[in-house]
Design a protein around this nucleic acid. Structure first.
Lengths: 232, 232
DNA sequence: GACGGCTCAGTGGCCTAGCCAATAGGACAA
DNA sequence: TTGTCCTATTGGCTAGGCCACTGAGCCGTC
């Protein structure tokens, strides 16, 4: 074995379709396109990019696999709402509907996230958390279940932790969490109980009390798990 | 909002390249091909699959994006060693070398994992943990740093938790952890300290004491973080 | 007016055929 | 042994074409 090692660098070559895919994503963010917006037709896009339709097609396959776009036969190419691949979601769901697993993962991540949030939250973070709390309260007062507000709250807390990796992991299981969330909030009286739990978490984060935030979050997640386990 | 819901199912159509990609992966696992093995040349593979080279090419792009194969101009198509996408690794590393983030994520996951392991470990799990402990001790006695044993130990504990999702997440950051691991164990006297920490965790797991296992693991991860922070 | 079927333009799906470019390995000269 | 060159093999990419699907508008029937 020669240990010649990485001297002048591996020097990897880029394929055309990769460049095309990058140009497309760049174009998307430049024009601030959102989910549901359409890309130009393939023929037109191909000529304006100066590549053949086959190459453009490869680029679109790549973007499709990543989860950026959805190519629809006879219709067109539209942007997808999930910029990141939640392949995990698919994998887990395909394997078995393991709700308890989701709860465990959520507990692991969010307990830590709450502690970090208590230590690192900025005023802006607190404002966002407060807004989510209010949104959920309003929704419940209006007779709703506060599903959206619940989601906003957890996202705000996650962002307040300022930990990219943990945030990434949360986003990976967000789809799975959403299902348990709806399940949970459909139980009578549950929305108000859940809101109270949120308030407790928010207070601890605002106070900068990591241990209390962590404990409150743990209790909250366990509350949710009650439901999930019932139907297991 | 019409809640017509999922009646006869969305009925999604499969593209040819998807079927091709599936056939290829099936063929790979059937023939038990491993990293470094080669796929047949495109022309040959295309005709034997009954599709055009363009379509096959799309399938290969998809497999390449997922991380199953690497297509090399003028050489051929070879299997990659990472069957699952550790895109997180790339993303994080590309963004910035955020060691603290890794520590946080590891703390979140492994603290919970240790607790679950204490509750769920089988005799087989305990044997594996014990074996890892012994391997690390032997390596250190022989003058080594016990890097491999360290890895074995954490993997054994993770498996003992019997939580697929958490295990999946650990595997996703395993590459990042490995780097901090080597860093840590290179410090003088660190291998023995680390081994002692492992023993404490293993004892708690064997005793079925979730809280103690959790605390021991937390302490252990924090020990590792000392190093990483030094060079931050 | 509501419903159902028809047509057609636009769009992606896939193929054939072909040339270009990179690689690896052998032949051969220094 | 070393370095150069040649060449077969393999992927990269293009051009052009036909087919299949979608959606919207039109039109007749009830």
């Amino acid at each position: 074995m020669s240990e010649s090692a990485r001297f002048p660098r591996p020097l990897q070559r880029t394929r055309l379709y990769e460049q095309v895919a990058e140009q497309i994503t760049a174009w998307i963010s430049e024009n601030d396109l959102k989910a549901g917006d359409r890309l130009p037709p393939e023929r037109q896009l191909a000529t304006s990019l100066g590549v053949s339709r086959a190459t453009l097609s490869q680029a679109l396959v790549a973007l499709e696999v990543i989860g950026v776009v959805a190519v629809r036969h006879g219709d067109g190419t539209v942007l997808t709402d999930r910029p990141r691949a939640e392949r995990i979601t698919d994998a887990i769901r395909a394997h078995a509907e393991r709700i308890p697993d989701v709860i465990e993962a959520r507990d692991a991540l969010e307990t830590k996230i709450a502690a970090l949030a208590a230590q690192r939250r900025t005023q802006e973070d607190l404002d966002r958390i407060e807004a989510a709390l209010r949104a959920m309260a309003d929704d419940i007062d209006g007779g709703g279940r506060g599903v959206h507000g619940d989601e906003l709250f957890h996202r705000a807390v996650t962002e307040a932790a300022h930990s990219p990796l943990l945030e990434q992991m949360m986003s990976e299981i967000s789809e799975l969490i959403r299902e348990t969330r709806i399940e949970s909030l459909s139980q009578p009286d549950r929305p108000r109980t859940s809101l109270a739990g949120h308030q407790k978490i928010a207070d601890a984060i605002a106070a900068g009390d990591a241990a209390a935030a962590s404990a409150a979050m743990h209790g909250h997640v366990m509350l949710v798990s009650d439901v999930a386990l019932l139907r297991d």
